[in-house]
């Protein structure tokens, strides 16, 4: 099978909409087909990685652990926009998984390298 470079571009906060969860579903599907998968987090998408989700009160499935499990699917390319983090009072220490933090311009370069970009 031809391996293509897939990037999921995550720009929405978790739980308020279903986009973040759907993105993870597609990541796992693409990884199951042994594609070259990366995830970009920018704008409110960086909130998806904020650690400490306690979803009992809202009776929703917490999917924070799924980010931690991505490594088991050989998905290790997680890119986060520095500017989006800073604008929300967040630093790398606030995130639930190791990521590569970069500028918006560098994120744009990574996007340019992809075969397929899926927006969530």
């Amino acid at each position: 099978m031809t391996i293509k470079k897939f990037m999921m571009v995550n720009r929405k906060a978790p739980y308020g909409t279903v986009y973040a969860l759907e993105s993870l579903e597609v990541v796992l599907i693409a990884a199951a087909f042994e594609q070259d998968v990366s995830l970009a987090f920018l704008d409110d998408g960086v909130y998806q990685l904020k650690k400490g989700h306690q979803t009992k009160g809202v009776e929703m499935k917490a999917f924070e652990k799924t980010y931690g499990a991505l490594e088991d699917y050989d998905v290790t390319k997680l890119y986060v926009d520095q500017e989006s983090l800073a604008g929300r009072g967040l630093t790398a220490d606030d995130l639930c998984v190791p990521v590569e933090i970069m500028s918006r311009a560098d994120l744009g370069k990574r996007m340019e390298e992809q075969d397929v970009l899926l927006s969530f």
Binding site: P14, K50, K51, Q54, K56
Partner: peptide, 13 residues
């Protein structure tokens, strides 16, 4: 709403 802050990991902020 506290439960929404807890779900997003930001109740302590």
């Amino acid at each position: 709403l506290g439960p929404d802050m807890e779900a997003r990991g930001i109740a302590d902020r």
